[in-house]
């Protein structure tokens, strides 16, 4: 199976190890992953708050390129990209007037909107296309007894009815459970990490991050798994700030789920970008 790949701006910067580990995991499973040609920013949630029609057109340019290149499934790992591309797709499918308008704008770029492109999250692809059993039997390493907090964040499960429950998703729990790990009780798994508020309202975002860290550590998690570059940075890079502000002493590794999955599939640590994480993961002797 061949997938088109939309890395998104964050995966070129702060979320680089997500890009590396995702490619490694797809390679290890024999899945094709072809980067979308000359992709542009999805517009994120910020563009939406400035000009909706323009932001839809900018985001639709990526869908149009995917359609032109014959791609059916466009894999978007960043939660914001995923939700924005999905939303664009749905708005354009539901509203013919909007579609006509966006198509006119795309015409300026020599492109046209294709109805048959699907936006997918890699977690969805791995769990539903490949299957947990297939992955478990391809694994060369298990994580027996590793207690982890699977954190899904907000935008891969909301607002669209996506591939998992919008408040209590289980895809990661099941996937890593099949590899021997023990997902801890983590009821805040889809609570907001604060997103851009870390820049605009740090007091509020630090509060939100603290709640997530408290819940993960008090329930005995040894690491947190994320699916989103924004969540990863907020949870990992700002632990120091949280510690300073609240007098706590958090030092819990925050990994992209593809990094841990890559380890299970026998990828090298460097290929998974593990050296890029600020708080290193210390695994007990491999079983």
């Amino acid at each position: 199976m061949e997938y088109l790949y939309f890395p998104g701006c964050s995966l070129e910067g702060a979320g680089r190890q997500y890009d590396e580990s995702l490619r490694a995991v797809f390679r290890a499973l024999g899945l094709g992953l072809k980067e979308l040609e000359d992709w542009n920013c999805c517009g994120a949630t910020i563009y939406m708050s400035v000009d909706e029609a323009t932001s839809l057109a900018v985001s639709a340019r990526n869908l149009a390129i995917a359609g032109r290149d014959g791609g059916r499934d466009l894999v978007a790992p960043c939660s914001a990209c995923y939700t924005v591309l999905l939303k664009t797709n749905r708005f354009l499918r539901e509203s013919p007037e909007l579609r006509e308008k966006v198509d006119r704008l795309l015409g300026e770029a020599g492109l046209a909107y294709h109805l048959d492109v699907r936006v997918r999250h890699p977690l969805d692809v791995l769990v539903n296309d490949v299957g947990i059993q297939t992955i478990a039997s391809a694994a060369t390493r298990r994580f027996d007894g590793l207690r982890l907090a699977p954190y899904y964040g907000c935008q891969i499960v909301r607002p669209e009815r996506g591939f998992d429950h919008s408040e209590f998703p289980e895809a990661m729990d099941k996937l890593f459970g099949a590899l021997g790990a023990e997902p801890v009780y983590f009821p805040v798994k889809t609570r907001c990490c604060g997103g851009m508020l870390m820049t605009t309202f740090p007091e509020v975002a630090l509060d939100l991050v603290r709640e997530l860290l408290v819940c993960a550590t008090e329930n005995g998690a040894e690491c947190i798994l994320t699916t989103c570059p924004m969540c990863q940075v907020n949870l990992e890079a700002y632990q120091d700030r949280v510690n300073k502000k609240f007098g706590t002493s958090f030092a819990i590794p925050v990994l992209f789920f593809t990094q841990l999955l890559g380890l299970a599939l026998g990828c090298e640590e460097k290929a998974l970008g593990l050296q890029r994480n600020l708080i290193p993961l210390k695994l007990r002797a491999a079983a």
């Binding site: 542009n40 300026e108 770029a109 020599g110």
Partner: peptide, 27 residues
């Protein structure tokens, strides 16, 4: 750790994006 891109990358289609934005504003 190589997680900070110092300079922005400009995509090839940026002129096309600008045309789209302008056309959208005209609309």
């Amino acid at each position: 750790r190589g997680r900070l891109m110092l300079l922005p990358k400009r995509i090839r289609g940026v002129a096309a994006i600008r045309r789209m934005i302008e056309a959208s504003e005209a609309l």
